[in-house]
Design a protein around this nucleic acid. Structure first.
Lengths: 209, 209
DNA sequence: GTCTATAGCAGGATAGAC
DNA sequence: GTCTATCCTGCTATAGAC
């Protein structure tokens, strides 16, 4: 299948550049030409390996996005060390560390979340994949972990709470340019850990626990 | 300029359909053909009235998005009735009612927020316009209204808090399909007021006041 | 498995009649 | 101000050599 004497086969290089460009510009904003130029190969390779542009896009999710998201989910579970009923503060800290820190570079994690936000706006088959294989399990786990700690036992509220925590997490992805544009201030080194601290504090307060 | 015997001139019909389609599919996802078919006029009209597709897109912001956002901002200010130091609960309730209820239909307000979220992901000239003319004033106003009530006097925290409130507000726009897809539950009539209640409660808690 | 060459089509933009 | 007709570019996809 892959050329055996290459660290990164053409197929892998295409997937990598495709993910990066789709995240940055969206499906319709990128051409196959652009992808293959970046991947230093010919346009025809995309059709040889993936049949079509749309299928390349879906393959980005299948072979890169979903496995990466599952890794973060596993890291999240692992950092709770199988505790029966961890406190909400511990749950949210574990969540933030696994999903916002994790092993990825800033750029990689930014792209990762850009892809799913684009899918939320204009869902394709990829969103169903992501929802069923990663988002729903995470939601269910969070729901079960947080439910016992709430004095206010309304299920509906907790559902919305978790959606808001998702929202903050995704949205903070875009905060750096926004904060600069809107407040005029500049953030750099400390920005990431500030975001994580904020996310934990705000969400924990938001839950009302 | 406009045909005087028409309630909605061709120019207006183009703007209206363009806004709707750009919101739904993004700039690159829509063709001029699609817009003019929906507006029941010919392709050449776009170039006659707007010179180019990009300029039509920008004009959607200039002549529709920004005035609408300003209306909501004014309604927000009006509902505070010039109080000196309203409590955070009152500020957030006014915010939610002006920005999430307001005079718009559900579909209209959904499109309104879709446009700005797309700009946050892939900013064009339109984002600068929106940031300078509407988002920054709103941010500054909220900052000044909320600052006196906080026991924790850190400026940086309040900046992030407001960004998170923006995030929740924008993200809840997409919640209905998300909640259904992820939880399997269905929401309908009561969904909107549930969202508003949730947004006020969660944000108020999040602020820690 | 990767390349060149090209088919075939859809896109934005323009010219000019009315 | 609105239309028809058309240009031309850039796109996806395919054929076929190596």
């Amino acid at each position: 299948m892959a050329k055996s004497n290459n660290n990164h086969s053409t197929k892998e290089r295409i997937l990598e550049k495709a993910e990066s460009l789709f995240a940055e510009k969206g499906f319709h904003g990128v051409s196959i030409r652009e992808i293959t130029t970046a991947a230093k190969c010919n346009m025809a390779s995309v059709h040889y390996h993936f049949n079509s542009k749309l299928n390349l896009y879906l393959e980005v999710f299948r072979s890169r996005w979903i496995p990466r998201e599952k890794q973060m989910y596993d890291a999240f579970l692992a950092s709770l060390e199988g505790e029966e009923a961890p406190e909400p503060g511990k749950v949210l800290t574990a969540l933030a560390n696994s999903y916002l820190k994790g092993p990825m570079s800033d750029e990689e994690s930014r792209r990762h979340r850009q892809l799913i936000v684009r899918e939320m706006q204009t869902p394709t088959e990829a969103f169903k994949l992501a929802a069923n294989e990663t988002l729903r399990p995470l939601f269910t786990t969070l729901y079960n972990l947080l439910k016992p700690s709430l004095h206010n036992g309304s299920d509906g509220n907790l559902t919305f709470d978790i959606m808001s925590i998702f929202g903050i997490t995704l949205y903070l992805n875009y905060s750096r340019p926004m904060v600069s544009q809107i407040t005029g201030k500049e953030y750099d080194d400390t920005f990431k850990s500030l975001l994580i601290d904020h996310m934990v504090r705000f969400s924990l307060n938001g839950l009302g626990s």
